[in-house]
Each structure stands twice: as C-alpha cells, then as structure tokens.
Design a protein around this nucleic acid. Structure first.
Length: 235
DNA sequence: AACCAGGACGTGA
DNA sequence: TCACGTCATGGT
C-alpha cells in the first residue's frame, strides 16, 4: 500500500467520522418521503445514493453544477429556486425563456452573462442526450463545462465513478504536504481514483466531505489553522 | 473594505 | 502548454 493510498483512506475515514454522510447533491424538490426537506439541510439526502432518479432532478443537478461555479452553493440554490418559480427546471421550458428573464433569475449566482449562455448550451446538450449518459469527453465539449463541472455532472447527476477535484481538494491536500501545490487537475483526479475503490458512493461522499472540511479550515488565510487532520499526519 | 465563493474561457507568450 | 486577465453578485 502506497503512502498516498494510506493517507487518502485515513483522511476519508476521519472526515466521515467528523461530519457523517453529506447527502449530496442537494435537490430543491425532494419527494415527500424524504425526511430532509426543511431547515439547514434542506435538499440534502444523507445516506441515499439513489438520487437523482427522475429526469427533472438529473437536469436540476446539471443546472446547479453550472450555477455554483466559483459561487457559494447558497447563491446557486437561490438561482435554482428562482428558476423553479418560473417552472424552468424543465429543459424545454428553460430554452424558451426570455434571455433577460433568465439572467434576472440567475443574477444572484453571479457571472449572469456567461452562465445564461452556459445554461442554454448544456440544456441543448441534455436534450440531445435523450436520457443517455454522456461521456466525459462530450461533456467537456460543451461551452461552460470544464473538468470539475464535467466530473460533478457525471458523479452527482449520473452516478458515474468520476472523482471530483476542486480548489479545496488541491488546497487541502497540498497544505497537508501530500501532493505538490502545482499538481494538475487530471493528475490529482487520477491519484484519487487509482488509490480508492472505484465506488460511486465513496467518490460522492469524499468530495462532499472535503468541501465541508475545507469550508471550515481552508477558506481564510492562513489556511489549516486548527485543522484536526494535521494531528494524524504524523507517520 | 478587501477577500472569497463547490470555475471556465480567451488571449498571448 | 501555461500564466494571466476577465467574468459579477453577495456574504463576511
């Protein structure tokens, strides 16, 4: 067992012990059988890895993946709620939306000019898919979909075992001295994927746990102050 | 009042 | 390939 494999496994277990299952990806309209519908964890569904199922929910995850780019999830969620008020979390409806109305709805998530275009692009792509699971390469061909968004869509909308790397992932693991701070997206992604079981639910939890942990200890500088992970890295 | 948020794209070297 | 500027609103 490599040192990296050892570290990522231990860190995953530690984060899971600290925060528990995260219930990603949050959905604004869960069916009534889901207990996590209100309050601080609205939309999250911890322990349930079968979501999303319905076309509408898959589409919602995709929209959220675009909307949350370089933006807090709270604002992305507000944008989704606005779209939902317009009954626009339906591909055909969103395509027919007036440009100014779309921008007004997603304004709170920032980058409204770019994201309005991106949402239209990914929506056309989604309709063409006609229910099929997209390849990573095809997703990357859509304007507005980069590495992280592609992996987020594949993992959280389509339940494909694609590990999601984000700035928090890089920041956390480089700060802990596990990888170089200049490591490339694909390098870090492959490092995780080759050292973890190819398991969708584990990829799902791990990325969500990294975000939860990094929000607490790696949002403001200096990074990593009081990070409880540090005390376990003495090997 | 600067800094950051669950990034991606276009440009020029 | 790679560094760098740009995109934009809202919270802390």
């Amino acid at each position: 067992m490599s040192k990296f494999q050892n570290q990522v496994t231990i860190i995953y277990q530690k984060l899971y012990d600290l925060y528990g299952p995260q219930g990603w990806w949050p959905l604004i309209n869960l069916n009534s059988t889901n207990p996590y519908k209100t309050g601080a964890i609205r939309g999250y569904h911890p322990g349930n890895y079968d979501l999303p199922q319905e076309r509408k929910d898959i589409y919602e995850v995709i929209l959220g993946a675009i909307l949350t780019q370089n933006t807090s999830w709270l604002q992305a969620e507000n944008a989704l709620l606005n779209l939902n008020e317009l009954n626009a979390i339906v591909p055909e409806k969103l395509l027919g939306l007036d440009d100014e109305i779309l921008k007004l709805a997603i304004r709170c998530a920032g980058f409204l000019n770019q994201k309005s275009i991106y949402l239209m692009e990914i929506t056309r792509f989604f309709i063409e898919l006609d229910g099929r699971v997209p390849t990573r390469k095809k997703l990357l061909g859509v304007k507005g979909v980069g590495n992280e968004t592609a992996d987020s869509i594949l993992l959280y909308a389509y339940k494909q075992a694609e590990f999601v790397v984000d700035t928090y992932t890089k920041r956390l693991f480089s700060h802990l001295g596990i990888v170089d701070e200049n490591i490339k997206y694909m390098e870090l992604k492959e490092l995780f994927e080759s050292n973890l079981p190819k398991d969708t639910s584990i990829y799902n939890e791990y990325h969500a746990l990294i975000v939860e942990h990094a929000k607490r200890y790696y949002s403001k500088k200096p990074y990593g102050v009081d990070d409880p992970l540090k005390s376990m890295l003495i090997d």
